[in-house]
C-alpha cells in the first residue's frame, strides 16, 4: 500500500479475507484506543485509576505495535510499525468507530472500554486458535491482558451502574450513546451471541438497561469514520509528519 494516500476517497474497500487488512484493522483498534486512554493520564478520579488507565493504554499500545510490525512483514514492503501508524490518513485507518469516540466523562470511558473489552475477549480467544502461529501467540498474550482490562471495566461499570443515582444515570446515558457503535463489532465474525450474553449479564448486575435504539452507525472498517478520528490522528502523527524520516 502507498502510505499517505492522496486520493480523497481513501483506500479501496479492504478485502476482509486479506491477512494484511485484517492485522491492520486490529492494530488500528488498539492504537486508537491507546491514544484515547493516553489523553486521560493525570485526569483520572483517583491515583489508582490513573495507574490502571496508563497500564491499559500501554497494553493496547503493545498489541498495536506487535500487530503493525507483523502486518509490515506480511505486506513485505518494509513498512515499520511507525510508518503504518503515522503515515496513513484518516480514510485509511480501519479501526472501529467505538474506539475513536472521545473519553467524555468517566462513565463514557468505562462503557467504551467495557464494550470493546468484551468484544476483544471473543476476538483473542478465537485468534488464539489461528493456524498462523505468530498471530495465535500474540492473541494468547493479548487475551491475558484483556481479561484484566475486562475485570477493570466491568467492575467499574457495576460500581457506577449500581452506585448512586447520578452515577447510574451517567452510566446509562453513556451506554445509550455508545450503543450505536456496537453492530460494527460483529461485521465478518460470529462473536455477537457470546458478546451479548457476557455484556447482558454485566449490565444486569450493574442494574443498567440494554438499549433498544435500533440506530446503528458503521463504516470504520472501510474508513468511513466519525469526525473525531481526524483530530486524534493529527495529534498522534504530528511529529512524524513534521519531521519525516528522522530517528527518535
Amino acid at each position: 500500500m502507498t502510505l499517505v494516500s492522496r486520493a480523497p476517497q481513501g483506500t479501496p474497500p479492504p478485502d476482509p479475507g486479506d491477512k494484511f487488512t485484517m492485522l491492520l484493522a486490529h492494530a488500528d483498534d488498539n492504537m486508537v484506543l491507546s491514544q484515547r486512554l493516553g489523553e486521560l493520564i493525570s485526569n483520572a478520579p483517583e491515583l489508582e485509576i490513573d495507574i490502571a488507565v496508563g497500564n491499559i493504554s500501554l497494553d493496547h499500545l503493545g498489541v498495536a505495535r506487535a500487530l503493525y510490525t507483523y502486518a509490515g512483514e506480511v505486506e513485505g514492503e518494509g513498512h515499520s510499525e511507525d510508518q503504518l501508524a503515522m503515515f496513513r490518513n484518516e480514510r485509511d485507518f480501519t479501526n472501529l468507530l467505538l474506539v475513536e469516540q472521545p473519553n467524555g466523562d468517566f462513565a463514557h470511558t468505562i462503557v467504551r472500554q467495557f464494550l470493546f473489552d468484551a468484544y476483544q475477549a471473543e476476538l483473542w480467544s478465537d485468534l488464539a486458535h489461528s493456524d498462523d502461529e505468530q498471530l495465535a501467540g500474540m492473541a494468547a498474550r493479548a487475551a491475558k491482558e484483556n481479561a484484566y482490562h475486562l475485570r477493570f471495566s466491568a467492575g467499574w461499570l457495576v460500581r457506577l451502574g449500581d452506585g448512586t443515582y447520578e452515577s447510574h444515570h451517567r452510566a446509562q446515558l453513556a451506554l445509550d450513546e455508545l450503543w450505536q457503535y456496537t453492530a460494527e463489532l460483529f461485521e465478518g465474525n460470529e462473536y455477537r451471541e457470546a458478546w451479548e450474553s457476557a455484556v447482558g449479564s454485566t449490565l444486569s448486575e450493574a442494574t443498567l438497561d440494554v438499549p433498544d435504539d435500533p440506530y446503528q452507525r458503521t463504516g470504520g472498517r472501510s474508513g468511513f469514520h466519525t469526525e473525531h478520528l481526524g483530530l486524534l490522528l493529527a495529534e498522534m502523527q504530528w511529529m512524524q509528519r513534521s519531521y519525516p524520516g528522522l530517528e527518535w
Binding site: N43, A44, R159, L160, E166, S167, R170
Partner: peptide, 15 residues
C-alpha cells in the same frame, strides 16, 4: 481532575 471525579468516588463508596 479531582472535582470531576467526585461522583465516581461517591459511586464506589455507595456501591
Amino acid at each position: 481532575a479531582w472535582e470531576d471525579g467526585a461522583w465516581v468516588r461517591e459511586a464506589a463508596t455507595a456501591y
